[in-house]
């Protein structure tokens, strides 16, 4: 179970809608199983060079290379590292934990893609060394634009498991 204040759910959906058709992304703070705050982070994918794109691999890299820089952010996101670091510092200063990441899928369901899983595992490989708790991965789907959905997952050993969301007033 993951508890999220309704204002933060509204905020994440608004963020996804504001950036559509580009994917939005952000960080969530909190403690244990309760989200306290959300930080919007810039999706810098369109600004990445051809060489930078190789931080993605496999089919996603091929797909990205086929698209124009502007179109790339429709199917992927890359968080701005500086903003992510600033958010992490703010989270720490408030005595909270980095509890999760969120991003939007503009045209597909709220399920982790293969790229989401691969990069979640990349994060997992260094997370313990940075003393960060296991994160929740949240996805906002605008596939049905009049009815956005949001789902949370734990991703362990490349297997996503949905975690029910409990909306707090």
């Amino acid at each position: 179970m993951l508890a999220i204040p309704s204002s933060i759910i509204t905020n994440m959906i608004a963020h996804a809608r504001e950036l559509a058709p580009h994917e939005c992304c952000g960080i969530l703070s909190g403690t244990e199983h309760t989200i306290a705050d959300a930080y919007r982070i810039t999706n810098i994918l369109a600004a990445l060079s051809e060489q930078d794109l190789t931080r993605f691999d496999g089919a996603k890299l091929t797909d990205l290379q086929r698209l124009s820089p502007e179109e790339r952010a429709d199917i992927a996101f890359q968080m701005d590292a500086r903003e992510m670091a600033m958010a992490q510092r703010d989270i720490r200063s408030k005595g909270l934990d980095l509890l999760g990441f969120y991003h939007s899928h503009t045209f597909s369901p709220a399920r982790p893609s293969q790229t989401d899983i691969t990069i979640a595992m990349e994060f997992e490989s260094y997370r313990a060394k940075l003393h960060l708790p296991e994160p929740f991965h949240l996805i906002v789907s605008l596939e049905h634009s009049d009815q956005p959905s949001i789902r949370a997952y734990r991703i362990r050993e490349s297997q996503p498991t949905e975690v029910p969301i409990h909306t707090l007033p």
Binding site: A76, M84, K129, L130
Partner: peptide
């Protein structure tokens, strides 16, 4: 000391 080079989180649909 340990130095870690870490790409920020990414992903995609």
């Amino acid at each position: 000391d340990e130095v870690s080079i870490i790409p920020a989180i990414a992903g995609g649909a």
